[in-house]
Write a protein that binds this DNA or RNA. Structure first.
Lengths: 186, 186, 186, 186
DNA sequence: TATGAATGAGCATTCATTCAT
DNA sequence: AATGAATGAATGCTCATTCAT
């Protein structure tokens, strides 16, 4: 892994474990095995590294979420997306925690937050199609519908990360059902 | 308002707006109109003030959530609780933001997080009753069920706070429905 | 001497000996026998201390220059002023060196440089009177006349500070004569 | 212009505008269109470049000052030298500012300062001749006499550079007169 | 109770210089 | 000759906390 990558991943790891302000650049340097100055060769400042991580994770989202969708009915596709999200979160707990606990207002500038939403344009289109084709509630705003469904998933992963529940296949199935019940047209 | 109260509310306000580490004690002192030393007369350190705020808000929760429940069927009571939660969050945006954006791992010690859950024992009992009496899904763990329902509400308020959606009576009704669909026995 | 004074004089001393950028705040703190933080209690930043010194010295100028003028003819008064300047410079070599070698563009902001000229308004009036009453050249701009005369004095003190010449009474007398020959009406 | 020259002139330009310590080598490299490493191919360190500039300017002085002297009486020659100096300063404001504002104690080592005086040996001889032949004051030390005369010129140029006065032919004539009045035998 | 001057460890960042290519 | 990635000591400044009054 090159130095730039090592800096990013070390920062991600430390910032999730310790918090942004308990993570000095000197520690990042040491644990990434580079000199402090080297960090500033690749990044303008600490904030920029954090924004880089934020963009990176959101880009991953966009790709991973819509991957390997089965060519079947809407509901099955919805479930596949949920599963994708679960797998990503469970496989990348650092990414999950960064998004939930680190990239919290007012850390990320408004413009970045908005820019990054474009990475998940695919998901938005999918939901819009669900509304248009009468699979999803059509009386609820698109943004609210999406947020509520993903909130169900997020809630579950949060509980798992706190050590409060397991998140085996059974629970994943249940939460996916709940998310579907939330947003589907009745 | 006495000095202790002023310190707490000033800290809450600033910490929500600026973040914990961008909020120096000196600024809290100035905006609360007390001397720096006075803060340390009432609190051991900065962390203690934050924990005090955390306990205060959670205590409010416990009280507010179960207030004025109608003596009717379970579903109506569920809706009343949702409405209570909405009203609290909307009426106390600082409290909402503090819980969502400030009191984030690893800020609050594990023991405090657990201790504070007792404040909402009433809500837990209500959900347990819902399971036992066959109103709610009985195949899902209690914690997960509660978190998912409240996650629906929280998601909506977050969107409102970000300025992405309105949260008028219509939307509150919709989200309450979605939360109910999530957890009810089908 | 109080802490603020100690900080100012320590900074003056070090900055003259070492240059501004070879004088770290930590050294100022140590030699002034205060903590680093204390410096920032009294001043906003390093620059502010330097500006404070600059103002202080210029204020001294204004007072010292016109002190104890004999109530005689213009030329004798002129000589008294030169002597005042010599005495000040020789008695305060730190002040002299600060003005000549430290407070050099672009260290001091334009506005401060201009503001500070008001401290020596008395000298300007004296020169103006000299012009009006036909003691001094009236074909040369006031500013230029003043600068040239004081440049004579400054040149001499500079040589003394470099160790190139003595500056005993004899030389002081000579330089004063030269300054007078420079600006007087022929 | 070759790289070495480009480095020197870029450093001169930047150092005059920004000050020595606000001028990083990386900026010099960028604006001279060379790599940082290349600078260290031609010079040992930053200080050496500054000393090179200092020597270069002083060498210029020596040559320019005594150039094109008319073969007439002493006073006319004196006036020609003054004019040479004015022309040099006005045509090379960077050189002037470097000498006045950058090459200030303790930037240049004592030995260099002394060594460089040899470049202006011609001027020294001219003044000595003036003393010996009874054109200049013979009661004042040579160094002091020279410094005072050139101080008059310098004062005027400084005022011009500060934007305080024009320095057209009329003023140049005046200042030359003043310089002469300063040092001539009465 | 209340004050605010004083402290100094700790931080983000800079920059002259090196050196493998 | 020329490059520019890499280094890490050093700097200005912050801020939670203490304590004499």
């Amino acid at each position: 892994m090159d130095k730039r990558q090592r800096i990013i991943f070390t920062m991600l790891e430390l910032v999730v474990k310790q918090g942004v302000y308990a993570t000095p650049m000197s520690q990042v340097a040491k644990e990434a095995n580079v000199a402090v100055g080297t960090i500033y060769h690749y990044f303008d400042n600490k904030q920029e590294i954090l924004e880089e991580i934020y963009k990176m994770i959101n880009q991953d989202y966009g790709v991973v979420l819509m991957a390997n969708l089965p060519d079947t009915d809407f509901k099955t596709q919805f479930e596949a997306i949920c599963l994708n999200l679960f797998n990503y979160y469970i496989g990348n707990p650092l990414a999950f925690k960064f998004m939930e606990f680190v990239a919290v207002p007012p850390l990320m500038p408004k413009e970045l937050v908005e820019a990054v939403r474009e990475y998940t344009a695919g998901l938005r289109d999918f939901f819009q199609k669900g509304i248009d084709e009468d699979h999803l509630r059509n009386d609820v705003e698109l943004r609210l519908l999406m947020q509520t469904a993903s909130g169900c998933i997020t809630s579950a992963v949060k509980l798992k990360e706190m050590g409060a529940i397991e998140l085996s296949e059974k629970e994943i199935k249940q939460v996916t059902e709940m998310a579907w019940d939330c947003v589907r047209k009745h």
